[in-house]
Write a protein that binds this DNA or RNA. Structure first.
Lengths: 236, 236
DNA sequence: AAAGATATAGACCAAAAGATTAACACAATG
DNA sequence: CATTGTGTTAATCTTTTGGTCTATATCTTT
C-alpha cells in the first residue's frame, strides 16, 4: 500500500505577545506536521484570518488586552466553522480555565509547559479529543467541585430539610404549574375546567402551604425549589 | 536526619464484586504503603466501617446493586469525616463520571486500568489532589461541554438578541427588583419613598418595555434574563 | 430655547387577586 | 355507623393590581 501524503493540519495563532507567537510558529514549523497559516496579535485580526484560511485549530491566548480570550472563543465559535480552539495562558487561573472549557475550548495549556506537551495537546485536539494537562484538570476540578459544593450541601441535607412543595396536593401542583407561567386565574380556570373561584381557593391553600402571601412569592419559591427548569441539577 | 516511619494511609474498599475486592486488597498490600483497614461488598456495611476505622480514602465501586455509587458518595460525605472518595467503575459512562465528580469524588478510575495507575490515583488523591485519568477527563469534558452547549448557544447569540431589561431605566430596575421579591405597590412606595401611584406608573412602563401584562410575567422575564440568582451563569 | 427622556403623581375605572366561609365527596378511623 | 380529616369545588366580599389619561418638575441633549 502506497504511503499517502499526510495533509498538514492548518494552525492559526493568536497571541498579543509577538515573541511568544514567533516562538510557537517556529516550534510548529520545525515539528513539520503543522502548517501555520496565520498569526495575529489581537482577536479582531485573528477572526478575519480564521474566516480567510479556515484553520483546523486556533491557539488562542487567554490573557490579552482589550478583548479577552473568552470573548474570542465565543466569537470564533459564532463563525460556525469547524475550528477547534486550544486556549493558551500564562497562568493556571481556575476560573478562567473553567469558563474557557465551559464555552467550548477543546483544550487549555500553559505557556510554561514543555513544547512536547503543546504539540501533544494540539494533536489530541486535532484528533477530536479534549485535552487538559493533569495539572490544569486538577485545578479545574477543584473549582468545579467548589462551585457545586453549596448546591451539594443542600442536596445532601435535602432529604431531611422539608420542601414545602411536597405538601401540595396534585391539583395544587397543577395550579402552581400554571401560575409559574404567568397565567391569570381565569386562564387557569379555563385550562383546568373549574371555576375561577375554585382556582382562588387552591391558590390560597398553596400560599398557606408555601408560607407566602402572593403569587409572585409562590412562583419564586417554586422556581427556587426545583419546580421547573433544573438544567444542571443532580438528582443523586 | 533520621528517617521517619512513614505512616501508612488507611484505605477502605467497597465493591460488590468480591473477587475484585480481594484483588485490590492484595495489590495494595503488596505495594506496602497502604493499610487496607476494611472491605465491604455494599454501602451500608461500608459506611459503618468508615465510621469505625476513619480511613483516609475509600475506593468506591460505582456500579452496585441496591444503592448506587452516587448515593454512596453523598452518604459518605454526610458523615463529615475527612474521607476522600475515589470512584471505581467498570465503564467510562460520562454521565456517571460527571455526577460523581460533581458531588465531590476526588477521582475516578476504571477497573480495567493498570494497577500502577490505580496506585498513582490513590496517591494523588491522598495528596489532596483530584485525579482523573486523561481518557476519563476527556469523556468528562465532552459531557461537560455538551451540557452547556445549549446555554452557550443562547449566550453566543445573546449579544444580538435584545434583552428588554436593558431598556429599563435605573428607577424602573429598582422597582422591578422589589417586585421580584413579591412586595406590594404600597410596600415598594414606602421603600422608595415615593407615592403608590408613582410606583404604578413605573410598573406600567416596565410592563410595556418588557412586553408583559402583569407582575408575575415581569418577574419571570427578569429571572430568565439574568436579573437575579445567576449561579452557574457565564458572563463571557 | 426647544425637544426628549425621566421621575414624580393624581383620578378614575375595570379587572384580577386574595381572604373568608361553606358545601360536597371520599377515605380512614374508632 | 358515625366521625374525623382531606381534597376539590364554589360563592361572596375586600383589597390590590393594572390601564389610561393627564400633568408637573428636572435634567440632558441638541
Amino acid at each position: 500500500m502506497r504511503r499517502e501524503f499526510k495533509k498538514k493540519s492548518k494552525v492559526l495563532l493568536i497571541d498579543d505577545n509577538y515573541e511568544h507567537l514567533a516562538g510557537i510558529r517556529e516550534l510548529l514549523n520545525i515539528e513539520g506536521t503543522f502548517d501555520v497559516v496565520g498569526i495575529a496579535t489581537n482577536i479582531t485580526v485573528g477572526l478575519n484570518l480564521i474566516k480567510k484560511y479556515q484553520p483546523d485549530i486556533v491557539l488562542l491566548d487567554m490573557n490579552m488586552p482589550e478583548k479577552d480570550g473568552l470573548q474570542g472563543i465565543l466569537e470564533i465559535s459564532k463563525l460556525d466553522l469547524d475550528v477547534k480552539v486550544l486556549a493558551l495562558s500564562g497562568y493556571d487561573d481556575a476560573d478562567l480555565i473553567f469558563r474557557a472549557m465551559k464555552i467550548g475550548a477543546k483544550g487549555y495549556v500553559l505557556k510554561t509547559m514543555a513544547s512536547a506537551q503543546l504539540i501533544y495537546a494540539i494533536e489530541e485536539v486535532l484528533n477530536g479529543k479534549i485535552y487538559l494537562p493533569l495539572a490544569l484538570s486538577s485545578r479545574f476540578f477543584e473549582y468545579f467541585q467548589q462551585t457545586f459544593r453549596e448546591e451539594n450541601a443542600k442536596q445532601e441535607t435535602g432529604e431531611e430539610e422539608e420542601n414545602l412543595l411536597d405538601y401540595l396536593t396534585q391539583r395544587e401542583k397543577e395550579v402552581l404549574e400554571l401560575l409559574t407561567q404567568g397565567i391569570t386565574y381565569k386562564g387557569v380556570a379555563n385550562k383546568l375546567f373549574i371555576s375561577e373561584t375554585t382556582v382562588k381557593t387552591h391558590v390560597n391553600n398553596i400560599f398557606q402551604k408555601l408560607q407566602v402571601n402572593d403569587r409572585t412569592q409562590a412562583v419564586l419559591y417554586a422556581i427556587n425549589n426545583g419546580f421547573l427548569s433544573n438544567k444542571m441539577r443532580i438528582s443523586a
